[in-house]
Amino acid sequence: MATGSKKVIYAALAGNALISVTKFAAATYTGSSAMMSEGIHSLVDTGNQGLLLYGMKKASRPADDKHPFGYGVELYFWAFVVAILIFAVGAGVSLYEGIQKIVEPHPVTNPIVNYVVLGLAMIFESVAWFIALREFTSIKGKRSYMQAVQQSKDPALFTVLFEDSAALLGLVAAFIGLAAAQILGLPWLDGAASVVIGIILGGTAIFLAYETKGLLLGESASPELVANIRALVAETPNVDALNELRTMHMGPDDVLLAVSLDFKNDISVGQVEDAIYKLEQTIKARFPMVRRLFIEVQNRKHHEEMVRQETDAAATEAH
């Protein structure tokens, strides 16, 4: 995960840094509102990739007394911050620039400069987008792209993919807006393109915020991993029943697993301890992403009674 994600982020970071400088220079020279919005867009994306790299570095810190489950969730926090920045800065400023240009339209000077910059930007963005798409395709398996995004636990990867996709759509909108303003002699269409770019960024930000919010709240491991662990528990000698199995991602490759087991009544405490030890060793060997594993020994009837009590208490609080 980390290597692939970092490769995608570095590619996007390099491309956006170069593109943003070029776009701002073109916007200043020609007075294009759409080009200014695109410059802001690329600058925000550059900062976002820096934040994702920062989040990955912070998330890699080992667990300590203050954070006994590690810092993996910090990546999810910074990914959520990225979504907020796209919405607040990228979309907000683009909408403002566009509305200002619509209210007070003025012609774009030397439009050929903008077309050249947009063409180069499309090439750079396409390369970054292709790298992100190839990396994401390699891990999505047989799932659709939308299912893969919804089930992904690596926000760095799908955030960059969506940022690059939004960037390409924004470039197309800017190109159409500038061409229409020049051909039709309607300068306000340049501002309309900026508004469209703002809408694209806003939609992207809302979607990313929704996906990363779920990761922040704590999402379970993939159904495949849960099913495999269930099958492994079922094969464990002296286990009478699996009462409960809960998982939560603490990071892209960091799963917390809690299991409640009912062992056969005719075995010794030593046999229970040996079974738990062997089960822990087997789970961690087969599924390295399970970093923390807690196994509770509990009679099935007692477990069901506890679940009923918790359900009743929750229902009482709800009323």
Rank of each mutant, 00 (worst) to 15 (best):
R246Q: 14
S268T: 15
Q49S: 09
E235D: 11
Q151Y: 09
K153W: 00
P288I: 05
I206M: 10
G270K: 12
Q298W: 08
A79Q: 14
F162N: 12
F130T: 00
T311E: 10
H303V: 08
N238F: 13
N48S: 05
I229R: 14
R61K: 06
V307F: 12
V108A: 03
I200F: 10
E224G: 04
A59I: 03
I229L: 14
Q271W: 01
L75M: 06
Q298E: 15
I139G: 02
S32C: 07
E163A: 04
L257Q: 00
H41K: 11
K6I: 13
V226Q: 13
T316C: 00
I206G: 06
A34Q: 07
G72M: 02
Y277K: 14
V255E: 02
G185Q: 05
L217M: 10
R300F: 12
V160F: 00
L256N: 10
F124Q: 07
Q151S: 14
H303N: 15
M146N: 10
A209Y: 11
T137Y: 10
A174D: 11
V103M: 13
N16D: 13
V8A: 03
W188I: 11
D240W: 02
S60I: 05
G141L: 07
S5F: 02
T30G: 11
F69C: 08
A174K: 06
R134P: 10
N110W: 10
Y29L: 15
A315Y: 07
A318P: 07
L85I: 05
A205T: 09
I183Q: 06
S152P: 07
K57N: 11
V82A: 07
E104V: 14
P155S: 03
D154G: 05
D254W: 06
S268V: 06
I267N: 12
D45Q: 04
I9C: 01
A91C: 03
F124W: 09
V233W: 08
D262H: 04
M36Y: 03
G202M: 01
L178W: 03
F136W: 09
H67D: 04
